[in-house]
Write a protein that binds this DNA or RNA. Structure first.
Length: 823
RNA sequence: GGGCGAGUGGCGGAAUUGGCAGACGCGCAGGAUUCAGGUUCCUGUGUCCGAAAGGAUGUGGGGGUUCAAGUCCCCCCUCGCCCACCA
């Protein structure tokens, strides 16, 4: 009987769907397990990246289920976003039908892959119910002071007369649509106060089972740095002082000038009349410069800054130093002003050189130091009461001095900024605010939620949100005074949608609240989170913030802090050196493999090709490897059907060879358990291949019927999470239609896993001279005796004196010899 | 510039605590089956010397620790990713 891949796979997929095999109730009694793949942006049929992602997820779901858990396996769609809006602008049609069509395509692919979900729990970001609770949460955050309004610059395209997302600005700073140079424009926008959680988000990382490099990325993103802030008097001015932040208060005696960011609020106040024109010209140049230009390291020299004419007093030594503006000081970090210490900071050094400013070393560099600015440790010099102290001591002393003087204190600074969530886009969740001329920004009352964008909108090729032109949407009564007011037309960043969808999955049918905290308690945190590393910073950080904030405003359980204690980032699929993606047009559709070798073979390929976190190169050889996986499954099929077993198997009392097969089966289980726990799926597949080869050899030499049947069953159980269709089909054949995925995961018997014999490697001076089969239980004395008895070893010794014996029974003996004793 | 990874046959990769380097697969070669191609099965396959037995050599390069190093330490080279004027 041949294996009709298509027929078998489609039949089982239909059965899993109609039986609701992977639907899970919220009132089960088994222990719970929550497996989650990052919900996808619906871009159409699945590509290989999806296949890889959902193969890992599905393996975890099926494996956990067989291990006896109630498994929550939900999926949804991150269905708001720019691509759909762009498609709408291009076609003039509303993004909703476009998005719904893409979702259906992606769903079909996932089902054809054999990935199983509780489809009753499907969540879509653009669903009015989801929008409602998204807005509800925003309003609670607003009440709690976690959301606020402030002005911030946006990318503005003068040609399109519209705001651009960062990804719409090309690397040369021009608009991707019109080619105009993009400028900055200040707008009133909404923020989430994520910085309030900076410390907790940082500390929480320590206990997460995430790859170290992802944690490092988050740590760097949060960017905690300890230092001091202190105030500098402005020479001849009692009314203003400049506050600076530094991580090196120990170097304060080396301050030879002060720098304000060009945007700093004190610039106008301190600039002297004779420098006014030069300062204004500089500020204008910085303002119109693109981020690229401003951050260009090419730029050096005098165009990078300007003298304000004002002077500040260094409180440490009373010296008067000039105040400059420089583009390398950023308005958003620290206090937007620095004390410049060129001897210990290379940027300050370069600037000082360009402007002929003095350089005073306050840390003694090593004797062989040939560089410029020295940032290392060393004794303080030229620093009065700090002289002789090392950097750490000097920092401490300097801060104590500032505190005693009452002009500064130790401070902690973060690189992390508050989360700007406003987007001047149509295809997103509307921000539920009404702007009233008398009452200002007024929250939409809960009973008016959701605020959903209208259907009768016209998409113009300007890129501007059509909400801004829709009178019916715009006009609203102020909830406070009832007067005429205008609706907010900005929508939320789509990262907002993805910051709590995993909580909604726990009780997606809730109509009176975002989710049921009890059900959240039952399922959360997610036991295994899987998704691309491109979300390693923002999505994961935002979701961690949201979870805490929801707990703190009382929507989620108080004790829920970390949503994803265990996260595995899968590697990306590369082709010709770049990421495989729809936009690059280098997709290799999974469908062709579904039709040829089948979903199981393609899944097996993705598991087998390498470690899950490694990138996969799609090459000329890839098709051959996929076919190899298909060939392996054909061999499994022959093992699992009577074709081989019937004529070949023998009824007999068990022999030593038969027992070896039983042992090999248990070793396979132990190995798969270990591999699965370490996410080493490539070696897990290799283990099943090895076992299959063992069984084929066993059959060739005459297999015992019962032993073979049990061994094949074990192989099928191990394959059930990896190649579910063929495993299900063969199991049903062999066990009267029973369902393999409802079988318990077998347990390896330690007695059978333990080896009874081992290969003792005998080395002479570290070189392998002999290999001897020995009893696994031998001790050191016995191992040495066996090693010395070896003829090959005697030959290699060649009369040399054994000076030392290293015995590690039962695996290795190393005989260390000197030269032959000379006569 | 900073941080984090990684470099193993023709290729993807394996080797959990230092203990037989190259599991498993692809490819390739030879053979069996076949009219032939395909399929399937068997055998071989790091490199060098050798007919073979066997020997030498071998995990980016150099040094070190150790009875023993792909694995640990130091220096260097190359590649990848992330953050990048963060005071």
């Amino acid at each position: 009987m041949g294996y009709d891949v298509q027929e078998v796979e489609l039949r089982w997929q239909a059965r899993w769907a109609t039986d609701g095999t992977y639907e899970v109730e919220n009132n089960g009694t088994k222990p719970t397990y929550y497996v989650l793949c990052m919900y996808p942006y619906p871009s159409g049929p699945a590509h290989q990246g999806h296949v890889r992602n959902y193969t890992f997820g599905d393996l975890n779901v099926r494996h956990a289920r067989m291990r006896g858990y109630d498994v929550l396996s939900p999926i949804g769609f991150d269905s708001f976003g720019l691509p759909a809006e762009n498609a709408a602008i291009k076609s003039g049609a509303h993004p909703r039908p476009f998005t719904d069509a893409r979702i259906e395509e992606l769903k079909a692919s996932l089902k054809r892959l054999g990935a199983v979900y509780d489809w009753r729990r499907e969540v879509r970001s653009h669903d009015p119910q989801y929008i409602k609770w998204n807005q509800f949460i925003f309003l609670r955050f607003l009440e709690a002071g976690l959301a606020y309004r402030a002005t911030a610059p946006v990318n503005w395209c003068p040609g399109c007369q519209t705001v651009l997302a960062n990804e719409q600005v090309l690397s040369d700073g021009t608009c991707e649509r019109s080619g105009d140079l993009v400028t900055k424009r200040e707008l009133e926008q909404w923020f989430f106060r994520i910085t309030q959680y900076a410390d907790e988000l940082l500390e929480g990382l320590d206990e997460l089972e995430w790859p170290e490099r992802v944690k490092t990325m988050q740590r760097n993103w949060i960017g905690r740095s300890e230092g001091a802030t202190f105030r500098l008097a402005v020479d001849g001015r009692d009314d203003v002082s400049i506050e600076v932040f530094t991580t090196r208060p120990d170097t304060s005696f080396g301050m030879t000038y002060v720098v304000l960011a060009p945007e700093h609020e004190l610039v106008d106040q301190v600039t002297t009349p004779e420098r006014r024109a030069a300062v204004d010209a500089f500020r204008e140049r910085v303002r119109s410069a693109t981020d690229i230009e401003r951050q260009s390291t090419e730029q050096t020299g005098r165009e990078r800054g300007v003298d304000t004419g004002a002077r500040a007093i260094n409180p440490f030594n009373g010296q008067s130093v000039p105040i400059y503006l420089a583009d390398y000081v950023l308005p958003g970090y620290g206090t937007g002003a620095i004390m410049a210490v060129p001897a210990q900071d290379q940027r300050d050094w370069d600037f000082a050189q360009a402007f002929d400013l003095p350089i005073v070393r306050t840390v003694q560099p090593p004797d062989d130091w040939e560089g410029e600015a020295y940032t290392g440790d060393g004794p303080a010099i030229n620093s009065d009461f700090l002289d002789g102290l090392d950097v750490a001591q000097a920092k401490k002393q300097a801060i104590e001095w500032l505190v005693a003087k009452g002009i500064g204190e130790a401070t902690v600074n973060y690189r992390l900024r508050d989360w700007l969530l406003s987007r001047q886009r149509f295809w997103g969740c509307p921000i539920p605010i009404i702007h009233c001329p008398t009452d200002g920004a007024v929250p939409v009352p809960d009973d008016q939620l959701p605020i959903v964008a209208p259907d009768d909108v016209e998409f113009l090729p300007t890129g501007e949100s059509p909400l801004r032109l829709h009178e019916g949407f715009l006009r609203a009564a102020c909830p406070k005074c009832g007067g005429p007011a205008m609706r907010e037309t900005d929508t939320m960043d789509t990262f907002v949608d993805s910051s709590w969808y995993f909580l909604r999955f726990c009780s997606p049918w809730e109509e009176n609240r975002p989710f049921d905290p009890e059900m959240t308690k039952r399922w959360m945190p997610v036991d295994q989170y899987i998704g691309g590393i491109e979300h390693a910073i923002l999505h994961l950080l935002y979701a961690r913030f949201y979870t805490r904030a929801l707990a703190d405003v009382g929507i989620a359980p108080k004790e829920l802090r970390e949503p994803f204690p265990r996260y595995v980032p899968q590697g990306m699929i590369r082709m010709d050196g770049s990421k495989m993606s729809k936009s690059k047009g280098n997709l290799v559709a999974p469908e062709q493999y579904f039709e040829s070798v089948g979903a199981d073979a393609l899944r097996l390929f993705h598991l087998f090709v390498g470690p899950p976190t490694d990138d996969v190169d799609w090459t000329d050889q890839t098709d051959e490897v996929i076919e190899g996986c298909g060939r392996f499954l054909q061999r499994v099929w022959r093992l699992g059907t009577d074709e081989v077993q019937g004529p070949a198997a023998i009824d007999r009392d068990p022999t030593a060879e038969d027992l070896e097969i039983v042992r090999a089966s248990h070793r396979l289980i132990a190995r798969i358990d270990d591999n699965f726990s370490r996410w080493s799926y490539n070696t897990a597949v290799a283990a099943t291949m090895e076992f299959s080869n063992t069984l084929h050899r066993y059959i060739a030499e005459g297999a015992r019927r019962e032993t073979l049947a049990e061994a094949v069953d074990t192989l099928l159980l191990m394959l059930a999470p990896m190649a579910p269709h063929i495993a299900a089909e063969l199991w049903a054949h062999r066990h009267d239609g029973a369902h393999i995925h409802e079988q318990p995961w077998p347990e390896a018997d330690p007695d059978l896993v333990a080896v009874t014999t081992a290969t003792l490697v005998v080395q002479v001076n570290g070189k392998v001279k002999d290999r001897i089969e020995v009893d696994a239980g031998i001790d050191e004395v016995e191992a040495e005796r066996i090693a010395r008895a070896s003829e090959k070893v005697a030959e290699a010794l060649n009369g040399g004196e054994i000076r030392r014996v290293v015995a590690k029974p039962p695996r290795l003996v190393n005989l260390v010899v000197g030269p032959p004793a000379s006569g």
